[in-house]
Amino acid sequence: MYGAMLQSKNSRLAFPALLVTTLVVFLLLGEELPFIMEYPEQWIVPFKYILNNFMDWLINQCSFGFFTFKELTRSLAWLASWPFEFGMGTLVEGFDVPASMLTGSGFHIPHVSWVAVVFCAALAGHYLNGWRLAAICGGCFLYLAVFGQWESAMETFSSILIAVPIATIFGLFLGTLSYWSKTVEIVLRPVLDMMQTVPIFAYLVPILLLFGFGPVSAMLGTVIYAVPPIVRCTHLGLKSVPEEQLEAGVISGCSRTQLFWKVKVPASKKQIMVGLNQVIMLTLNMVIIA
């Protein structure tokens, strides 16, 4: 009947009419039958306990024979902590070289001096856009030192230096994959929606349980949080290369790989840059929380 209504001349009115009718009917029914107004508690399925039990099992009992699941994740965390340790060592802590045959009594390599960092920032600014940007970059880093925030700032900075490239590479990879394969695109779309809508703490806690408290968990959380925009931008950028540019590439004799690297990627660079900008912003946001 609903279908018939839709096809009638007044089909535009059919849907609102149905909506109003539903609201009124159930409002009237609700006075007679209380379960229509409030969802009865005994109908709730105890997903919470099932999920809790599953997490509990995953962390405490799940095993692959030689090693447990938790050992697997923790060793992954240990592996992934290397780049982070390196970043921290360079900017904040320096490196302790332990005593051994090769090094003799062992010694300490100091971290990069704050003067050098300020100078490098200014230099990068000058390279990118001349003296004005150089002054702004150098000035901002100097500000951190002057106001006594140097150490914590460098800690954040080193996480960003590691997290942004990881998120970017991962995002570019997924975006490209979803461009090539319709299946990947269809699967990825709801996953990205989830990643962007689920509150951070909802996945931060299980990550902490699996990977332990530390920079790696923070980084993983950051990547999950920051990756969706660059995936979307990469996908959109590659998709929106004008047809004639592609045809010009093909008629010039491009192979598939040449067409991708010489035509599609450069043409979608602007979009990808927007994605990168989002990644950096979200990473900053997340690193502080994590």
């Binding site: 540019q245 045809e247 093909v250 010039s252």
Partner: peptide, 16 residues
Amino acid sequence: RRHKMGMVFQHFGLLP
């Protein structure tokens, strides 16, 4: 295509 064909497009199809 590399050696025997050339094509001109309505909206030029230049690589920006």
